[in-house]
């Protein structure tokens, strides 16, 4: 139901090229599985400079749960952040580190 097909390198490349926007149906399925299959504290961003700087954080959906910054993960565009989170989710689900 929620498997990740590690052999689909084409989907990794498709997402690397277009982290935000129009995606193929198979990539959409992969993204939905990665994103909804996160653990207790999914990833999100904290915007530190509007339209210029974002930092990676985690937070459970529970009311008043803390927002925890992840050190060293700073992005200068939404696309850069999406790709970084994709790599983290891929690694969490498959064990493989994407470059």
């Amino acid at each position: 139901m929620n498997e990740i097909d590690r052999s689909r390198r084409d989907l990794i490349e498709e997402f690397r090229r277009t982290p935000i926007g129009r995606h193929s149906p198979d990539l959409r399925l992969l993204l939905n599985r990665l994103r909804t299959g996160q653990g207790d504290a999914p990833y999100l961003l904290v915007c530190t400079v509007p339209h210029r700087e974002w930092r990676l954080a985690r937070k459970t959906p529970r009311r008043m749960s803390p927002v925890t910054l992840i050190p060293g993960q700073v992005f200068s565009s939404p696309e850069e952040a999406e790709w970084a989170v994709f790599k983290l989710l891929w690694q969490e689900r498959t064990g493989e580190v994407l470059s």
């Binding site: 993204l31 996160q38 999100l44 915007c47 937070k59 009311r63 749960s65 939404p78 989170v85």
Partner: peptide
């Protein structure tokens, strides 16, 4: 604040919190 991974899939991009969102999180 409370959408989690479902919201990431639903909106098709990451949520980004600002100072106002963080205050709201602490003060329901």
């Amino acid at each position: 604040l409370e959408g989690g991974g479902y919201l990431h899939a639903f909106s098709n991009h990451l949520t980004a919190l600002g100072a106002n969102d963080l205050w709201l999180n602490d003060h329901p």
